Simulated scan of single mutants.
Amino acid sequence: MTVLIDRPMWPAHGTVWSHLVSDTSLDELHAFAAANEIPRRGFDLDHYDVPARLYDVLVAAGAHPVGNRELVLRLRASGLRVTKRDRATRPEHPGS
């Protein structure tokens, strides 16, 4: 099981955010998020957006910290990456 998290650096809504991904499967990602009480509404097609206040909690729970470049490279290599082109043909927040 490999769940990855990048450093909180993406500003929105008065805080900064990290991306939480799996380089194995979306089922694994959803299970990790659920086990750590991350709401499904935080899922954005191939990742969860998580606020900075949860970063240390998620790392302690087993998420592997990586740089944002490595996170994207590993997500692409897994085949789970959703591109801008893909977004045009997929629902915005499946399962929410």
Rank of each mutant, 00 (worst) to 15 (best):
T2F: 06
A12Y: 04
R87A: 15
D49N: 13
A88T: 10
S22A: 05
H93G: 01
A88W: 13
P94E: 15
H64A: 05
G62P: 02
H30F: 12
G62W: 13
T83R: 01
R87I: 11
D44H: 02
G14S: 02
G67P: 03
R81Y: 12
G95Y: 08
R74V: 06
A63L: 06
T83Q: 03
S18H: 03
M1L: 07
A52N: 11
R85Q: 12
R53W: 02
S25L: 02
L80P: 09
S22C: 10
E92S: 12
L54P: 00
A31E: 15
T83V: 02
V3N: 00
K84A: 15
W10K: 10
D56H: 03
L75Q: 13
S18G: 07
A77C: 08
P8Q: 07
G42Y: 13
K84R: 15
R81Q: 13
A63Y: 03
T83E: 01
A88Q: 14
N68H: 11
N36G: 05
D6N: 15
N36T: 09
S18R: 06
W10N: 03
T2R: 15
H19Q: 05
Y55W: 12
G95A: 05
R85N: 10
N68T: 05
V59E: 08
Y55K: 00
L20A: 11
A77Q: 15
H64N: 00
A31N: 08
A34G: 04
A31Q: 15
R53A: 11
S22Q: 05
L45V: 06
H64T: 15
F43L: 10
S96N: 10
A77I: 10
S78E: 13
L45D: 03
G79C: 07
P11N: 07
V82G: 07
D27N: 14
A60S: 09
T2M: 12
V66L: 11
L29W: 06
G79D: 07
A88L: 14
L4M: 08
A77S: 15
V50D: 09
A31I: 09
S18V: 03
H47Q: 02
P8F: 04
T2S: 14
Y55Q: 08
A52Q: 06
A52F: 00
F43M: 14
H64Y: 03
W17C: 10
V16R: 09
R69F: 10
T15W: 01
A63I: 01
S96Y: 05
D23F: 01
R7F: 01
R53K: 08
A88V: 07
L26Q: 11
H13V: 02
E28Y: 08
E37D: 14
A60Y: 02
T89G: 08
Y48T: 07
L20G: 02
D6P: 04
V21Y: 05
D86Q: 10
H13I: 01
L20M: 01
A61C: 04
A88S: 14
A63D: 04
P51A: 14
F32N: 02
F43R: 13
D46R: 12
